[in-house]
Design a protein around this nucleic acid. Structure first.
Lengths: 151, 151
DNA sequence: CTGAAGCTTCACGAATTACTGAAGATTCAG
DNA sequence: CTGAATCTTCAGTAATTCGTGAAGCTTCAG
């Protein structure tokens, strides 16, 4: 087995550059590349050379985002964590909160300036686009799950 | 007309929280809410109370991302800028670079650990998902443009 | 050709963000 | 019930990011 840590960290860097918090990205990638079903917070800390506090914060974020889940405890020790199988779908579809906000923000802007102004037309375009995406993304993800079930 | 600056800044904040650089987000939103077709770097600086340097950097970023375009100069003064009409589509579809990287990263990981390991199966799921998205997003955007042309 | 206006680049300093370490909370074994 | 192991929270600090201001470059008017 090659040095997977470097590969994992490389992906983490990519996610960080796309806006994810650094430690959250590192923890997610460590879970992704782990040759175990689950990891404890302590194991993650060791693997990442990070303090317990940093790991705790990162896991909280990841669990909130539904990218990682607490596992009830397979053996019987403390909390175990694993990346959710549908994590990537959640991450992509989960932008819904952002998209909703974009639609609302555009509407708010239109209310302020009127639809028949220069800015109003731009804002209407923005609203229409995000409303379209808002409609289509769930269907896209659904098709993915369907396709996946077939195999 | 209400105070549109606050609305613009609010949207900018949202974009910042989603990973866009602060000043780039502010400049984009200023252009979005502007009651003019185009703005010069100087006008933007004034509107944002930001230094020329900061505006210059932000515009460079936005032009590189294809969210904003230089306008050849309508009158004859210096560079004018405007938000591209398809900016939002570019912003959404433009994640392609990220998505390509995700696919590559997953494949790289699989090469390192083999497909028939615990990590290998997770990585294969990741690869399959992003390969799917890679295929579907362009079609999604294309349908948007089509729909739009109809009106 | 010369000067002025505007844009870009860059080094430095300010502000923000992220991590550590320690103290407190929680859970479980015995 | 008590103690040990692990996790969480938080204050302080380290690291990073971001913006300013100044200097240099480019373009254009005269």
């Amino acid at each position: 087995m090659a040095e997977t840590t470097a590969t994992a960290e490389h992906l983490a860097l990519l996610l960080t550059e796309s806006g994810m918090q650094r430690m959250a990205a590192r923890a997610l990638c460590a879970l992704l590349y782990a040759e175990q079903e689950t990891m404890t917070a302590g194991e993650l800390g060791e693997r990442l050379s990070a303090s317990a506090g940093a790991v705790s914060g990162a896991l909280k974020t990841l669990v909130t985002l539904n990218l990682v889940e607490r596992v009830p405890a397979p053996g019987s020790r403390r909390e175990h964590y694993r990346m959710r199988a549908d994590g990537w779908a959640v991450m992509t579809g989960g932008n819904n909160r952002l998209i909703d906000a974009m639609v609302r923000s555009a509407e708010e802007g239109i209310t302020a300036v009127g639809e028949d102004s220069i800015a109003g037309r731009r804002l209407a375009e923005m609203r229409d686009f995000y409303a379209y995406i808002q409609r289509e993304i769930p269907a896209l993800i659904e098709r993915w799950h369907q396709q996946r079930r077939v195999r």
